[in-house]
Design a protein around this nucleic acid. Structure first.
Length: 431
RNA sequence: GUGGGUGUAGUUCAGCGGUAGAGCACCAGAAUGUGGAUCUGGGGGUCGCGGGUUCAAACCCCGUCACCCACCCCA
């Protein structure tokens, strides 16, 4: 056992042929490229923020009663006595960057996407890691319901583009500062008579954060919870209109939804629309996408009071969902040419050709070991090369080029023109 | 933070007191002008780590660490 090993809850993502499960870089690249591309079709373009920020940013953004801030952040003090934290999520940083760079001045509605590692000190399990990865989008300044729908539609389209099936969109409203205090009172009053039968956590939440009681999974609490009054019956006029518009808009977009009356958000800054996209077959951590509206966060972070909506998905979880439906491998990148050496004295020719081909953007390989031809052919096959080019031998010595298609097994003999072998191969590859 | 499970070759695993094993992968040969097939051979291991019991421990006991799954929470 090696002395040095990965930190708990982190993973190595290997080349496809070396890795297993979701930890193969080809899968990641496909997911990342698809996500960025689909998001860009709705005007969302990538922003990259630092992976560590001042601790205060997350404490203010997430709320100091959330589990993430209380016990899951990787925080440290740097040599200048600054309190820093590896980001546990992406929204706080994006909002910070939006304020700091004056993005709202140029774009009244700023559409941003982001991608990268996040860090939470949780006990690892399937679909949950200490360094995990998210793709997210934020629509800052977008205060209309159609922005909520736009955000949900981006995630829905990414999922469809990836061929993932078996997912359900769950929606709810979490109100706003206007109506939620009232709803809290209603809930608190409703739970009061049952307080004795509820779990310890729920008793704690009854005082600190009543809304969180709604998604308690304790069986004893479920019975009481299931008949709790839904938030959607206690919304203010504005939130109720938003809730109606959301459902109508999703119908227009052809996106099926399910009203989950117990859906609440884990983070404090959400208002009105809350949504999740869940998958049934990827283990206990089935929530792939989570998001919603957060009209209060930008102002709370020191910016203007602008509305915003966004969401994010866990890349590891999305990959699990991709594999659950279709275990097909992503098509490996195949060498266009594999150069096989016949006889001696052509080593320089091969190296020159490899350099020339690669300089023109063509994937070209040669065998690393034996000069024995069967061995070289085997290597060409292992790389899944498209065509083998024979360098040396009778054809080569008489100004011709033998090329074998490794899929069909057919072999051509070309006459090398005055421009030379490299030009001949480049033309064949269409480069 | 709390449970349950598992740690043996690169990998997937068998072995469960008495010589450290198999499949796949890797290397070489059969085979110096043509493949992912076949055959033959080969390299690879402090059996997670530390202690204990025993004539003898991969195996039994204690401890410890790591990973996996679940709770909690979340993406």
């Amino acid at each position: 056992m090696a002395v040095l090993q990965r930190i708990k809850g982190t993973n190595d993502i290997l080349p496809d042929h070396l890795g297993s499960g979701i930890f193969r870089s080809g899968l990641w690249r496909r997911l990342e490229e698809t996500s960025l591309r689909v998001a860009s079709l709705s005007g969302y373009h990538e922003i990259r923020t630092p992976i560590f920020e001042s601790t205060e940013l997350f404490v203010r953004g997430l709320g100091d009663v959330t589990d993430i801030v209380k016990k899951e952040m990787f925080s440290f003090t740097d040599r200048g006595e600054r309190q820093l934290t590896l980001r546990p999520e992406g929204t706080a940083s994006v909002v910070r960057a939006w304020i700091e760079n004056g993005i709202g001045v140029s774009d009244a509605v700023a559409r941003l996407s982001y991608l990268g590692p996040m860090f939470r000190a949780e006990r690892p399990q399937k679909g949950r890691y200490r360094q995990f990865h998210q793709f997210g989008i934020e629509c800052i300044g977008g205060g209309e319901v159609r922005h909520d729908i736009e955000v949900i539609a981006v995630f829905w389209n990414i999922i469809r583009s990836l061929g993932v099936s078996g997912v359900t969109l769950r929606i709810n409203s979490v109100g706003c500062p206007e109506c939620i205090p009232h709803y809290r009172d209603v809930l608190r009053a409703y739970f009061e008579p049952f307080i004795g039968e509820l779990c310890d956590d729920c008793r704690e939440r009854h005082r600190t954060n009543v809304l969180r009681m709604l998604d308690c999974k304790n069986p004893a609490c479920q019975a009481v919870l299931s008949s709790a009054p839904p938030v959607t019956g206690h919304l203010c006029g504005e939130c109720a209109a938003s809730w109606d518009g959301l459902r109508h808009g999703l119908d227009l977009a052809g996106i099926p939804w399910l009203h989950d009356t117990r859906l609440v958000r884990g983070l404090d800054y959400y208002t009105k629309t809350a949504f999740e996209i869940v998958h049934e077959d990827i283990g206990a951590q089935g929530t792939i996408v989570g998001g919603g509206r957060y009209d209060g966060l930008v102002a709370a972070s020191g910016g203007q009071a602008v509305p915003a909506v966004g969401g994010a998905f866990g890349i590891e979880r999305m990959l699990l969902a991709m594999q659950a439906g279709d275990p097909a491998l992503s098509p490996a990148t195949r060498p266009r040419f594999f150069l096989v050496q016949i006889g001696d004295g052509v080593d320089d020719d091969i190296e020159r050709l490899l350099s020339g081909l690669r300089l023109h953007g063509i994937y070209a390989m040669r065998a690393d070991g034996s000069r024995q031809m069967a061995k070289q052919m085997r290597a060409a096959a292992k790389f899944a090369s498209l065509e083998v080019v024979f360098v040396g031998g009778d054809e080569w010595n008489s100004g011709r080029l033998a090329i074998k298609n490794m899929d069909s097994g057919e072999q051509d003999t070309l006459v090398v023109g005055p421009a030379g072998v490299l030009a001949c191969l480049l033309e064949r590859a269409g480069a």
